[in-house]
Design a protein around this nucleic acid. Structure first.
Length: 506
RNA sequence: GCUCGAUUCGUCUAACGGUUAGGACGAGAGAUUCUCAUUCUCUAAAUAGGAGUUCGAUUCUCCUAUCGAGUACCA
């Protein structure tokens, strides 16, 4: 069947979107774009209890920051609006009732308490309670009660749910693009709730099938945690008579916690020392968790890193632009096993992207940080020089600010280790000579280095000893790029002043 | 417990049933350098275990082990 590719990312607004969710969205997006199809954002807010204010806006902002563009969604609109399930609530009841009418579902009047009690009872007997063929005709269901009784209970406002009537002992045959063929016997499954009268809302299972059908979704790409629900979903398509237009499924491997075990969860916040969220998250409770954006990651680097976590094109290419990802992506190349996220690798990707920035862009990025961190105003030209000089040594733009600190501010202290190593009387004597030599120059530039080099050789001094002594006097530490480049940057006067200060102080 | 899924260097991964099992991050060593970082070179590092099928299994089948997911009137 050749139909338009339409995929959806369907998060529930119960908190910030963690990187696992971002990756699911990304793979959906890449798949859609690769096939020239549509990427739809649908908000699955059918759990009135767990709704978190701000989560929905966060999800949209997060996707936007990542460069994932939505074709149809709650802000973008589209032919199947609304895209928020809470605003579609009227449509689901009819479908649930259709299933009752066709004999695929039934009403159940059990209270949550009585079910809890049943579960406990079974547990005490060492059994597991399952709401399925074995009990549904014994409990308070429309299969057991007379039609009149059911009708009057509903009319008098008793609380009810509609449950799917899971067939007994049927092998459900399923296909997953990533995992291949899967078979499961329906007797191991239970009668899932499809619709609840209490809040007049469907559960995920009903809503997602109905909406995917109505929205003409061609491929469902979602996390592996949904795999156990797949037979139910297959059976629902069948019960509705929608087999012909049923989407294809692909279940993505999970993202694992960096240490310990289990899948990454939004509750993991930033307790591992790195963000699990794309953006800073401020929960209504006041809790906050850091985000990749705020940490200084480039969205392109973040996406590049995430794309390769569970997918690989089979080549040795590591750096991919979004367009290259779109071009190379295929679900068949998604791996089956869960992936553990590596912070080191994320940083490496960011460093790669930082180097690829051109100096003027980088300058613009660091000027505000320079202002904020060091309280100094720097011209674009000066900032460009800093960028050019230091970008190979940085992971984040903010690193450039820290690395360039002593290019703007004279050191107030001198690193003890470096001083112990190089600040020796004989070196200081030579430094004084060098100071006089420098002061005799018109100005100090990187070209001065050659001259100094020759002078050092002539005098038979040690370049390493002298240069580091000079470096300490200027920067306070034996680190950083070419000392002559730095001297050129701060200028002759400042260079001499710092040498004098160091000689006086140390 | 039950059901389903997964298992290649520490981590992310590659390998029509035939390769000295490749790459990347990280680690270690060396080279370069005025220092640090970069860069470059090199090194260590893996097919969970056991049976099959096959001329030949990382690759296919089964068993075991381990890990994970699901098992809600949550998604």
């Amino acid at each position: 069947m050749n139909r338009r590719v339409r995929v959806r990312f369907a998060p529930s607004p119960t908190g910030a979107l963690h990187i696992g969710g971002v990756r699911t969205a990304l793979y959906n997006y890449l798949f859609a774009r690769h096939h020239g199809g549509d990427f739809i954002l649908r908000i699955e807010d059918t759990d009135s209890q767990r709704f978190v204010p701000g989560a929905e806006a966060y999800i949209m902002e997060g996707l936007k920051w990542c460069g994932i563009k939505i074709d149809e969604g709650i802000e973008e609109g589209g032919p199947h609006a609304p895209y928020r399930q809470s605003e579609r609530k009227e449509i689901y009841l009819k479908y649930a009732q259709d299933l009752v009418a066709s004999g695929n579902a039934y009403y159940a009047f059990d209270s949550a308490e009585s079910l809890d009690a049943l579960r406990k009872e079974y547990e005490q007997r060492g059994e597991t309670f399952a709401y399925n063929f074995s009990v549904r005709t014994k409990l308070q269901t429309s299969l057991n009660l007379s039609a009149d009784e059911v009708k009057s209970r509903i009319e008098r406002g008793d609380v009810w749910v509609i449950r799917f009537m899971m067939p007994e002992n049927r092998n459900v045959e399923m296909d997953d693009i990533i995992r291949g063929h899967i078979t499961i016997n329906s007797s191991t499954l239970d009668d899932k709730v499809l619709y609840k009268s209490a809040d007049q809302l469907p559960t995920y299972h009903l809503a997602n099938i109905v909406d995917d059908h109505l929205m003409e979704i061609s491929h469902v790409i979602r996390g592996e945690e949904w795999l156990p629900s797949l037979p139910l979903h297959y059976l629902l398509y069948e019960a509705f008579g929608w087999k012909d237009s049923q989407p294809q499924f692909a279940h993505l491997p999970l993202l694992l916690k960096p240490q310990g075990q289990g899948k990454l969860s939004k509750r993991d916040g930033d307790k591992f020392g790195f963000p699990v969220f794309p953006l800073l998250w401020k929960a209504p409770t006041g809790e906050t968790a850091m985000g990749y954006r705020e940490e200084g990651y480039y969205p392109e680097a973040f996406i590049n890193m995430l794309a390769l976590l569970g997918w690989n094109p089979g080549t040795e290419q590591e750096i991919f632009s979004m367009d290259e990802l779109i071009d190379a992506f295929s679900l068949e190349k998604v791996s089956k096993s869960g992936a553990r996220f590596s912070h080191d690798k994320a940083k490496w990707f960011n460093a790669q992207y930082l180097r690829r920035q051109n100096d003027s862009d980088l300058a613009l990025q660091i000027i505000p940080i320079l202002k904020e961190q060091l309280g100094i105003d720097v011209s674009v030209e000066r900032a460009e020089k800093v960028a050019a000089l230091l970008k190979e040594r940085a992971t984040f733009p903010k690193d450039l600010v820290e690395l360039s600190r002593y290019m703007f501010i004279a050191p107030a202290e001198y690193d003890e280790k470096s001083v112990n190593k190089f600040w020796k009387p004989e070196n200081v004597e030579k430094l004084k000579e060098l100071r006089d030599l420098l002061s005799s120059q018109k100005d100090i530039t990187t070209a001065t280095e050659t001259m100094v080099h020759e002078w050092v050789q002539q005098k038979e001094y040690s370049m390493g000893q002298l240069m580091n002594t000079l470096r300490i006097s200027i920067l306070g530490i034996s680190q950083g790029p070419s000392i002559f480049a730095i001297a050129e940057f701060i200028g002759k006067e400042e260079t001499l002043r710092r040498i004098d200060t160091a000689i006086a102080k140390l």
